Amino acid sequence: MLIATAAVLGVVVGTCVGYLVQADREPTALPPLSQPSLAQAKGPGPEPLSAAQDRQVKVDGDLRKLLLSKPSGARKGLYAAAGDGWLYVSAYAETYKYPAGAFRNLVGKREFRRAAITDWRESDEFNVEIRLVQYRQEETGTEAADAADNAYYYAQPDGDYGTDSWPIPGTGDGMAYVHKKPDTSYGVGVYSAEAHAWRGDIAMEIWIYDTKPIPKAKVLDLAKRQMERL
């Protein structure tokens, strides 16, 4: 009991002494609450981006103008679904294996907005088709990237077509594919190549068909030039 009482008294006395010492000291001045004002930059503010520099203005305009132009001397393609350059959602759904389910998915979860299409023939057999598919991206904001991911998955078949693949320069994860074995289900051997990439809310699709093997350089060149326009 004596030891405990002495300890308590020691704490109390120490606290009192501390208060007395502090009371005898001069108060320490606090720093001012206000901060020095910053000098404002002189002259006019930055100029707004022009329509040519503002990507959002570009992609919200006429999507068909972002498609590659047909090469000189090329003829009308074989597969375009819309004569005015627009690929409507019903026609786009028909390009899937299960069109009814694709249609519901496109107008629902995938938030399809619009699609533009161009195609041409450089010979009787060599056909190119390019699609730009734009999504609203109001919920998750990744529909264009998801569409490209799905395309990457389905472009790698189970070995029947001997597919080779390469990244598309300047696109992040964009990929080009050449299928080295022809599809003979139409009674004639048809070789194919494809390329897929995305930027912002637009997914790019390129499809090439020929009765001869398709060079890697051809599909990569088309994909690179088309993505540069986005």
Score class of each variant (00 low, 15 high):
1 M>S: 08
1 M>W: 02
4 A>D: 14
8 V>S: 07
13 V>D: 03
13 V>G: 00
14 G>I: 03
14 G>D: 02
17 V>H: 07
21 V>T: 03
25 R>W: 05
28 T>G: 05
31 P>Q: 09
32 P>N: 06
32 P>R: 00
33 L>T: 12
34 S>I: 10
34 S>V: 15
36 P>A: 10
43 G>F: 11
44 P>H: 01
45 G>W: 04
45 G>Y: 07
45 G>K: 06
54 D>V: 03
57 V>F: 10
58 K>R: 15
60 D>M: 11
61 G>M: 13
62 D>G: 14
63 L>C: 13
68 L>T: 09
68 L>N: 12
72 S>F: 07
74 A>D: 10
75 R>T: 07
75 R>V: 08
76 K>P: 07
82 A>L: 06
88 Y>A: 03
88 Y>Q: 10
89 V>A: 07
93 A>N: 05
93 A>C: 08
94 E>P: 06
96 Y>M: 06
97 K>L: 13
97 K>P: 07
98 Y>A: 15
101 G>P: 08
102 A>C: 08
106 L>R: 05
106 L>F: 07
107 V>T: 15
110 R>T: 14
111 E>T: 06
115 A>L: 03
117 I>C: 00
117 I>A: 06
119 D>C: 00
120 W>L: 10
125 E>F: 05
126 F>A: 00
127 N>M: 08
128 V>A: 00
132 L>T: 07
133 V>N: 12
135 Y>V: 02
135 Y>S: 02
136 R>S: 13
136 R>V: 13
137 Q>C: 00
137 Q>T: 05
142 T>H: 03
142 T>E: 09
143 E>A: 03
144 A>F: 10
145 A>G: 12
147 A>G: 11
148 A>H: 01
158 D>G: 15
159 G>R: 03
162 G>R: 06
164 D>Q: 11
168 I>V: 15
168 I>L: 14
169 P>Y: 15
171 T>L: 15
174 G>V: 13
174 G>A: 10
181 K>A: 06
186 Y>A: 14
186 Y>G: 11
187 G>P: 08
189 G>C: 00
190 V>K: 04
191 Y>P: 06
192 S>H: 00
192 S>A: 08
192 S>P: 05
196 H>R: 09
199 R>A: 04
199 R>M: 08
202 I>Y: 12
206 I>D: 02
206 I>M: 04
207 W>E: 01
208 I>M: 14
208 I>P: 01
214 I>P: 04
218 K>T: 03
219 V>L: 11
219 V>D: 07
220 L>E: 01
221 D>P: 02
225 R>T: 09
226 Q>N: 11
228 E>W: 05
230 L>D: 02
